[in-house]
Simulated assay, not measured.
Amino acid sequence: MPRWTQVLELDSDRQPISGDADSLVAAVRSGADLRIGTAFRHNEHIDPESDREELIREVMDFRVCYLVKDRWVAGIENMRMPVELPDGFGPRESMSFFLYNQDGHQAIARPFFDGRQPIASPGVSPTDEWVDMPRYHELEAFDAGTNAPSSHFIYDFEYFRYFVGADWREVLSHESDGSVTGGSVVDLADSVGRGAEVKVAIRGLCADLEETPGEVDHEVFVHLGACYYYTEEQRLMAAANPVVRTRPATPLGYGTESWDFGWLMPRTDGHVAGWMCDPYTLKFRRTASRYAIRWFVSE
Protein backbone atom coordinates (compact mmCIF):
# COMPACT_ATOMS: atom_id res chain seq x y z
CA MET A 1 0.00 0.00 0.00
CA PRO A 2 1.41 3.47 -0.84
CA ARG A 3 2.57 5.61 2.07
CA TRP A 4 -0.12 8.20 1.24
CA THR A 5 -3.64 7.44 0.05
CA GLN A 6 -6.24 10.00 -0.98
CA VAL A 7 -9.48 9.21 0.86
CA LEU A 8 -11.55 12.35 0.22
CA GLU A 9 -11.70 15.22 -2.28
CA LEU A 10 -13.90 18.31 -2.14
CA ASP A 11 -14.47 20.79 -4.95
CA SER A 12 -14.16 24.57 -4.61
CA ASP A 13 -17.66 24.68 -3.10
CA ARG A 14 -16.51 22.07 -0.55
CA GLN A 15 -18.77 19.40 -2.00
CA PRO A 16 -17.47 15.80 -2.13
CA ILE A 17 -16.38 14.63 -5.57
CA SER A 18 -14.54 11.45 -4.54
CA GLY A 19 -14.01 9.36 -1.44
CA ASP A 20 -15.94 9.99 1.75
CA ALA A 21 -15.52 11.53 5.19
CA ASP A 22 -16.14 8.20 6.92
CA SER A 23 -12.94 6.80 5.41
CA LEU A 24 -11.01 9.84 6.63
CA VAL A 25 -12.44 9.48 10.13
CA ALA A 26 -11.69 5.75 10.25
CA ALA A 27 -8.09 6.31 9.15
CA VAL A 28 -7.37 9.06 11.69
CA ARG A 29 -9.09 7.04 14.43
CA SER A 30 -6.61 4.26 13.63
CA GLY A 31 -3.65 6.62 13.98
CA ALA A 32 -3.10 7.71 10.37
CA ASP A 33 -1.15 10.86 9.56
CA LEU A 34 -2.95 13.62 7.67
CA ARG A 35 -1.93 15.81 4.74
CA ILE A 36 -4.24 18.11 2.78
CA GLY A 37 -3.65 19.35 -0.75
CA THR A 38 -5.16 22.53 -2.20
CA ALA A 39 -4.57 24.81 -5.20
CA PHE A 40 -4.94 28.55 -5.79
CA ARG A 41 -3.94 31.34 -8.19
CA HIS A 42 -1.03 33.60 -7.26
CA ASN A 43 -2.92 36.82 -8.03
CA GLU A 44 -6.02 35.65 -6.16
CA HIS A 45 -4.40 34.47 -2.94
CA ILE A 46 -0.86 35.82 -2.66
CA ASP A 47 -0.72 39.20 -4.43
CA PRO A 48 -4.07 40.55 -5.69
CA GLU A 49 -2.27 43.42 -7.47
CA SER A 50 -0.20 41.03 -9.57
CA ASP A 51 -1.10 39.95 -13.11
CA ARG A 52 0.49 36.56 -12.44
CA GLU A 53 -2.30 33.98 -12.80
CA GLU A 54 -0.09 30.96 -12.22
CA LEU A 55 -1.69 28.04 -10.38
CA ILE A 56 0.07 27.08 -7.13
CA ARG A 57 -0.44 23.61 -5.71
CA GLU A 58 0.06 23.30 -1.96
CA VAL A 59 0.23 20.23 0.28
CA MET A 60 0.20 20.77 4.04
CA ASP A 61 1.30 18.49 6.86
CA PHE A 62 -1.07 18.39 9.85
CA ARG A 63 0.95 16.88 12.68
CA VAL A 64 -1.77 17.47 15.27
CA CYS A 65 -5.13 15.83 14.55
CA TYR A 66 -8.43 16.00 16.40
CA LEU A 67 -11.13 13.35 16.41
CA VAL A 68 -14.25 15.01 17.82
CA LYS A 69 -17.29 12.98 18.90
CA ASP A 70 -15.67 9.99 17.16
CA ARG A 71 -17.01 11.29 13.83
CA TRP A 72 -15.26 14.56 12.94
CA VAL A 73 -11.65 15.14 11.86
CA ALA A 74 -9.64 18.35 11.92
CA GLY A 75 -5.92 18.96 11.64
CA ILE A 76 -3.63 21.74 12.88
CA GLU A 77 -0.28 22.77 11.43
CA ASN A 78 1.73 22.96 14.63
CA MET A 79 5.13 24.01 13.28
CA ARG A 80 4.34 26.49 10.51
CA MET A 81 5.59 30.07 10.45
CA PRO A 82 4.08 32.68 8.08
CA VAL A 83 5.50 32.26 4.59
CA GLU A 84 5.38 35.16 2.13
CA LEU A 85 5.57 33.57 -1.31
CA PRO A 86 7.73 33.32 -3.29
CA ASP A 87 10.69 34.78 -1.40
CA GLY A 88 10.58 34.25 2.35
CA PHE A 89 8.63 34.93 5.51
CA GLY A 90 5.92 37.34 6.61
CA PRO A 91 6.39 40.75 8.23
CA ARG A 92 6.02 39.71 11.89
CA GLU A 93 7.62 36.85 13.80
CA SER A 94 4.84 34.46 14.72
CA MET A 95 3.41 30.99 14.31
CA SER A 96 0.69 30.20 11.77
CA PHE A 97 -1.51 27.60 13.43
CA PHE A 98 -3.68 26.88 10.40
CA LEU A 99 -6.57 24.53 11.11
CA TYR A 100 -8.53 22.60 8.46
CA ASN A 101 -11.73 20.63 9.01
CA GLN A 102 -12.98 17.65 7.04
CA ASP A 103 -15.64 19.85 5.40
CA GLY A 104 -13.22 22.57 4.25
CA HIS A 105 -13.90 25.04 7.07
CA GLN A 106 -10.61 26.69 8.03
CA ALA A 107 -9.21 28.74 10.89
CA ILE A 108 -5.96 30.35 11.95
CA ALA A 109 -4.46 31.42 15.26
CA ARG A 110 -1.30 33.49 15.30
CA PRO A 111 0.76 34.08 18.47
CA PHE A 112 3.27 36.85 17.80
CA PHE A 113 6.87 36.63 19.03
CA ASP A 114 8.12 40.13 18.17
CA GLY A 115 7.41 41.73 21.55
CA ARG A 116 5.02 44.45 20.37
CA GLN A 117 2.60 45.68 22.99
CA PRO A 118 -1.05 44.76 22.43
CA ILE A 119 -3.38 47.62 21.53
CA ALA A 120 -6.67 45.90 22.42
CA SER A 121 -8.17 43.46 24.89
CA PRO A 122 -9.34 39.94 23.99
CA GLY A 123 -12.83 39.70 22.57
CA VAL A 124 -14.91 39.30 19.44
CA SER A 125 -13.56 41.42 16.58
CA PRO A 126 -15.13 42.82 13.40
CA THR A 127 -14.65 40.64 10.34
CA ASP A 128 -12.80 41.93 7.29
CA GLU A 129 -14.53 42.05 3.89
CA TRP A 130 -11.28 41.18 2.04
CA VAL A 131 -12.54 42.97 -1.07
CA ASP A 132 -9.28 42.29 -2.93
CA MET A 133 -9.63 38.55 -2.31
CA PRO A 134 -13.16 37.51 -3.33
CA ARG A 135 -12.41 33.84 -2.69
CA TYR A 136 -11.63 34.59 0.97
CA HIS A 137 -14.66 34.58 3.28
CA GLU A 138 -13.93 35.54 6.88
CA LEU A 139 -16.68 34.14 9.08
CA GLU A 140 -15.59 35.14 12.60
CA ALA A 141 -12.67 37.05 14.09
CA PHE A 142 -11.30 37.25 17.62
CA ASP A 143 -8.74 39.21 19.60
CA ALA A 144 -7.56 41.64 16.92
CA GLY A 145 -4.94 43.97 18.37
CA THR A 146 -3.80 41.42 20.95
CA ASN A 147 -0.78 39.15 20.80
CA ALA A 148 -2.95 36.21 19.69
CA PRO A 149 -5.52 37.05 16.99
CA SER A 150 -7.53 34.24 15.43
CA SER A 151 -10.28 33.84 12.87
CA HIS A 152 -12.54 31.34 11.12
CA PHE A 153 -12.76 31.50 7.36
CA ILE A 154 -13.35 29.68 4.11
CA TYR A 155 -11.02 30.11 1.17
CA ASP A 156 -12.46 28.74 -2.05
CA PHE A 157 -9.49 26.66 -3.12
CA GLU A 158 -9.65 24.87 -6.46
CA TYR A 159 -10.00 21.63 -4.51
CA PHE A 160 -9.37 20.05 -1.10
CA ARG A 161 -7.62 16.66 -1.20
CA TYR A 162 -7.29 14.68 2.03
CA PHE A 163 -4.44 12.16 2.20
CA VAL A 164 -3.74 9.69 5.00
CA GLY A 165 -0.59 7.79 5.88
CA ALA A 166 -2.03 4.71 7.50
CA ASP A 167 1.11 2.76 8.39
CA TRP A 168 0.55 2.92 12.16
CA ARG A 169 -0.37 0.18 14.63
CA GLU A 170 -2.06 0.65 18.00
CA VAL A 171 0.00 -1.26 20.57
CA LEU A 172 -1.29 0.00 23.92
CA SER A 173 -4.40 1.63 25.34
CA HIS A 174 -5.08 2.48 28.96
CA GLU A 175 -7.42 4.46 31.18
CA SER A 176 -6.43 7.63 33.00
CA ASP A 177 -5.29 5.58 36.00
CA GLY A 178 -3.00 3.50 33.80
CA SER A 179 -5.14 0.36 33.82
CA VAL A 180 -4.53 -1.39 30.50
CA THR A 181 -7.49 -1.92 28.19
CA GLY A 182 -5.56 -3.30 25.22
CA GLY A 183 -2.06 -4.24 24.12
CA SER A 184 0.98 -4.01 26.38
CA VAL A 185 3.68 -1.56 27.36
CA VAL A 186 6.27 -4.25 26.58
CA ASP A 187 5.11 -4.36 22.95
CA LEU A 188 5.32 -0.56 22.84
CA ALA A 189 8.80 -0.52 24.36
CA ASP A 190 10.04 -3.26 22.03
CA SER A 191 8.81 -1.31 18.99
CA VAL A 192 10.50 1.86 20.25
CA GLY A 193 13.69 -0.11 20.82
CA ARG A 194 13.60 -1.19 17.17
CA GLY A 195 13.43 2.45 16.05
CA ALA A 196 9.69 2.89 15.49
CA GLU A 197 8.11 6.32 15.57
CA VAL A 198 5.44 6.85 18.23
CA LYS A 199 2.30 8.92 18.49
CA VAL A 200 -0.44 9.16 21.09
CA ALA A 201 -4.16 9.86 21.10
CA ILE A 202 -5.03 11.64 24.35
CA ARG A 203 -8.72 11.58 25.24
CA GLY A 204 -10.15 14.78 26.70
CA LEU A 205 -6.91 16.76 26.45
CA CYS A 206 -8.78 20.05 25.92
CA ALA A 207 -11.61 19.51 28.41
CA ASP A 208 -10.39 22.39 30.59
CA LEU A 209 -10.91 24.76 27.64
CA GLU A 210 -14.61 23.89 27.37
CA GLU A 211 -17.33 25.99 28.96
CA THR A 212 -18.55 22.75 30.56
CA PRO A 213 -15.43 20.59 31.01
CA GLY A 214 -15.77 17.15 29.46
CA GLU A 215 -18.93 17.96 27.52
CA VAL A 216 -17.49 17.17 24.07
CA ASP A 217 -15.75 13.83 23.63
CA HIS A 218 -12.49 14.20 21.73
CA GLU A 219 -9.05 12.73 21.16
CA VAL A 220 -5.94 14.71 20.22
CA PHE A 221 -3.26 12.91 18.20
CA VAL A 222 0.31 14.17 18.52
CA HIS A 223 3.69 12.76 17.53
CA LEU A 224 6.33 11.97 20.14
CA GLY A 225 10.05 12.61 19.98
CA ALA A 226 12.42 11.24 22.60
CA CYS A 227 11.05 8.15 24.36
CA TYR A 228 12.30 6.76 27.69
CA TYR A 229 11.56 3.24 28.95
CA TYR A 230 12.21 2.26 32.56
CA THR A 231 13.01 -1.42 32.11
CA GLU A 232 12.39 -2.62 35.68
CA GLU A 233 9.11 -0.85 36.41
CA GLN A 234 8.06 -1.22 32.74
CA ARG A 235 6.91 2.35 32.30
CA LEU A 236 7.47 4.48 29.21
CA MET A 237 7.33 8.26 28.88
CA ALA A 238 8.08 10.61 26.01
CA ALA A 239 8.59 14.23 24.99
CA ALA A 240 5.90 15.20 22.50
CA ASN A 241 6.16 17.48 19.50
CA PRO A 242 4.46 20.88 19.99
CA VAL A 243 0.71 20.64 20.49
CA VAL A 244 -1.98 23.24 19.83
CA ARG A 245 -5.02 22.87 22.06
CA THR A 246 -8.39 24.42 21.31
CA ARG A 247 -11.94 24.09 22.59
CA PRO A 248 -13.47 20.98 20.93
CA ALA A 249 -16.37 21.62 18.55
CA THR A 250 -17.64 20.70 15.09
CA PRO A 251 -16.36 22.34 13.04
CA LEU A 252 -13.21 22.91 15.06
CA GLY A 253 -11.84 26.44 15.35
CA TYR A 254 -10.44 29.01 17.74
CA GLY A 255 -11.96 31.68 19.96
CA THR A 256 -11.23 34.21 22.67
CA GLU A 257 -9.13 32.69 25.46
CA SER A 258 -10.08 29.17 24.38
CA TRP A 259 -6.79 27.90 22.95
CA ASP A 260 -3.12 27.59 23.83
CA PHE A 261 -0.01 25.73 22.74
CA GLY A 262 2.96 24.01 24.30
CA TRP A 263 4.66 20.71 25.00
CA LEU A 264 3.54 17.51 26.71
CA MET A 265 5.20 14.54 28.38
CA PRO A 266 2.76 11.60 28.38
CA ARG A 267 3.45 8.47 30.41
CA THR A 268 2.01 4.97 30.17
CA ASP A 269 0.38 5.22 33.61
CA GLY A 270 -1.92 8.02 32.39
CA HIS A 271 0.12 10.93 33.74
CA VAL A 272 0.63 13.81 31.30
CA ALA A 273 2.86 16.72 32.25
CA GLY A 274 2.43 19.93 30.30
CA TRP A 275 4.50 23.03 29.70
CA MET A 276 1.86 25.26 28.16
CA CYS A 277 2.18 28.77 26.77
CA ASP A 278 -0.47 31.47 27.11
CA PRO A 279 -0.57 32.94 23.57
CA TYR A 280 -1.63 36.38 24.83
CA THR A 281 1.30 36.84 27.21
CA LEU A 282 3.76 34.13 26.06
CA LYS A 283 4.05 33.15 29.72
CA PHE A 284 4.50 29.43 30.40
CA ARG A 285 2.78 27.37 33.06
CA ARG A 286 3.33 23.80 34.19
CA THR A 287 0.40 21.38 34.28
CA ALA A 288 -0.14 17.79 35.36
CA SER A 289 -3.25 15.71 34.66
CA ARG A 290 -4.27 12.13 33.97
CA TYR A 291 -5.82 10.95 30.72
CA ALA A 292 -6.84 7.82 28.88
CA ILE A 293 -4.28 7.36 26.10
CA ARG A 294 -3.83 5.19 23.03
CA TRP A 295 -0.26 4.59 21.83
CA PHE A 296 0.66 3.92 18.18
CA VAL A 297 3.91 2.87 16.51
CA SER A 298 4.98 3.18 12.91
CA GLU A 299 5.10 -0.01 10.84
Rank of each mutant, 00 (worst) to 15 (best):
Q6G: 02
L8R: 01
D22E: 12
D22P: 01
L24I: 03
A32P: 07
A32R: 09
G37H: 09
R41K: 08
I46F: 12
I46Y: 09
D47Y: 04
R52I: 11
L55D: 10
L55I: 10
M60N: 10
C65P: 01
Y66H: 14
L67Q: 08
K69R: 14
V73R: 05
A74D: 06
N78I: 02
E84G: 07
E84I: 08
E93M: 11
E93G: 12
M95L: 15
F98E: 15
Q102K: 07
H105D: 15
Q106R: 08
F113H: 14
G115P: 03
P122M: 07
G123M: 07
G123C: 05
E129K: 09
P134N: 11
R135K: 05
H137N: 14
E138M: 14
F142C: 09
D143K: 10
A144I: 10
N147K: 00
A148E: 10
H152P: 08
I154H: 04
E158G: 09
Y159A: 03
F160E: 07
R161I: 08
F163W: 15
F163D: 13
V164N: 11
G165W: 03
W168R: 02
L172T: 11
S176K: 14
S176C: 02
G178N: 06
S179K: 15
T181M: 01
V186T: 15
D190I: 15
V192H: 00
A207M: 01
L209I: 11
E210K: 11
P213G: 07
H218K: 13
H218L: 14
E219F: 06
E219H: 08
V220C: 07
F221M: 10
H223W: 05
Q234K: 15
Q234C: 10
N241Q: 14
V243D: 01
R245P: 04
P251E: 03
G255Q: 06
G255P: 00
E257F: 03
D260S: 09
M265P: 03
T268N: 01
T268K: 01
G270N: 00
G274F: 12
M276R: 15
T287E: 15
A288S: 15
R290M: 03
